[in-house]
Every structure is written in C-alpha cells, then in structure tokens.
Computed example of a mutant assay.
Amino acid sequence: MAKFIRANLEECTYKAISDISKYDDETKRRLQNVVRDKTDALADAAIKNAHVHTGNLMAGIQREYDLTPEHATGKVIAKAPHSHLIEFGHRGGLVLPIRKKALAPGGDGWFMSHAVIPAQPAHPFMQPAVNQVQPEFDAALKEAIDHDT
C-alpha cells in the first residue's frame, strides 16, 4: 500500500515550473538548477529527519529528476516498504492463525495461539522536510525568474 505526501506549491510557483518553455535558455537553466538543488535539499532533510533503527529507511530515500526543455520536476521517494508506517504510525493488531491451531514463530517448541502487534506512534520524516524546504524553494524559483528583471 503506497502512501504519498504531496507538496502543495503556491499557484504562481506551480505555473512557473509547469511550462518552462516560455522562458529563455538562461532562465530555463536556472529553473532546472533550482529544482535539482531543492530536490537534493529535500532528500537530505528527509534523511536527516528519518527515524533510525537499522538504516533501511534512510537507504530507501531516493531522488529522481525529470529536467526537459518543457518542464522541470523532482521527486523524493521513500522506497522502504515500511516507510509509510513510520511516517503515519499504525494501530495495533492481533494476528490469529489461519487453518492451524497455533502460530509457530520459529523457536524450538514455542507455539502461540495469537500474536499481539503493538501500536506505533508516527515519526514523520518527509512532511517536516517538505515544510522546511518549501519556502526556500519558492524563494529560489522567484529569484531564478526575476534574476535579470
């Protein structure tokens, strides 16, 4: 089950990067550099905020760029299968055996009639990173567009 955190950009910022073909080559280059730099900053902030237990969550945070003459986009993705559970937390649960009388956890002679999975509180790492980088991103985009004017 995939969960997404979307950074809602200001309308003027979204319009600025949704179609960069209307700008001259120098402005396009500056916009693409801003998108690349701020995507890197977002990934670094997410890694810094990640709740570290084994390091799998931090290793699964990746960045992708799509920089073309028509648009400039960047994505930061948490590919660890448990990343949404850490970001949003989860309720506890009770696991009962299916078609057997007991659960076998793998120990010698240990069998359980049920397993209790405790609830875990949320430890957000992506949303705080988005909240931290978004004002810098908006300001850098405005500076890239208004650079020569």
Results as ranks from 00 to 15, higher is better:
residue 32 Q to F: 05
residue 34 V to F: 05
residue 61 I to E: 03
residue 117 I to P: 00
residue 112 M to T: 02
residue 85 L to Q: 09
residue 43 A to K: 14
residue 109 G to C: 13
residue 138 D to T: 15
residue 36 R to G: 08
residue 42 L to R: 06
residue 111 F to C: 01
residue 25 D to R: 13
residue 53 H to Y: 13
residue 90 H to L: 03
residue 95 V to I: 15
residue 40 D to E: 13
residue 96 L to K: 06
residue 38 K to G: 05
residue 31 L to C: 09
residue 111 F to V: 13
residue 39 T to I: 09
residue 105 P to Q: 09
residue 41 A to G: 06
residue 111 F to D: 01
residue 59 A to H: 13
residue 28 K to D: 06
residue 101 K to H: 10
residue 118 P to I: 02
residue 119 A to T: 01
residue 40 D to P: 00
residue 52 V to D: 12
residue 103 L to R: 01
residue 81 P to E: 13
residue 64 E to F: 08
residue 57 L to Q: 10
residue 47 I to C: 03
residue 32 Q to C: 05
residue 88 F to V: 00
residue 47 I to N: 06
residue 112 M to K: 05
residue 36 R to H: 11
residue 134 Q to G: 00
residue 132 Q to C: 00
residue 85 L to S: 12
residue 76 V to F: 02
residue 64 E to M: 04
residue 45 A to K: 07
residue 52 V to C: 09
residue 101 K to V: 07
residue 41 A to E: 15
residue 114 H to M: 09
residue 77 I to E: 06
residue 70 E to L: 11
residue 116 V to T: 03
residue 24 D to E: 12
residue 136 E to C: 00
residue 113 S to V: 08
residue 98 I to P: 00
residue 69 P to I: 07
residue 47 I to H: 04
residue 54 T to F: 06
residue 107 G to A: 14
residue 43 A to S: 11
residue 109 G to F: 13
residue 115 A to I: 01
residue 84 H to R: 08
residue 106 G to D: 04
residue 48 K to P: 00
residue 134 Q to V: 14
residue 46 A to D: 02
residue 83 S to V: 04
residue 120 Q to P: 01
residue 60 G to T: 02
residue 113 S to I: 09
residue 98 I to R: 09
residue 134 Q to K: 15
residue 88 F to W: 09
residue 94 L to M: 07
residue 82 H to C: 07
residue 122 A to M: 10
residue 108 D to A: 10
residue 96 L to P: 00
residue 123 H to V: 11
residue 112 M to F: 12
residue 97 P to F: 04
residue 62 Q to D: 12
residue 34 V to I: 08
residue 92 G to W: 08
residue 79 K to L: 14
residue 139 A to T: 14
residue 57 L to H: 07
residue 48 K to Q: 12
residue 120 Q to T: 10
residue 60 G to S: 07
residue 104 A to P: 02
residue 36 R to S: 15
residue 71 H to S: 14
residue 30 R to D: 15
residue 41 A to R: 06
residue 113 S to K: 15
residue 94 L to R: 08
residue 127 Q to K: 15
residue 131 N to L: 15
residue 110 W to G: 01
residue 134 Q to N: 15
residue 72 A to P: 07
residue 141 L to M: 10
residue 144 A to E: 00
residue 72 A to S: 13
residue 114 H to F: 14
residue 130 V to Q: 04
residue 124 P to Q: 10
residue 129 A to V: 11
residue 91 R to I: 10
residue 45 A to S: 07
residue 79 K to A: 14
residue 119 A to P: 02
residue 80 A to Y: 04
residue 40 D to T: 13
residue 83 S to W: 03
residue 26 E to R: 12
residue 39 T to E: 09
residue 71 H to A: 12
residue 46 A to L: 03
residue 48 K to G: 03
residue 133 V to K: 00
residue 67 L to M: 13
residue 92 G to C: 06
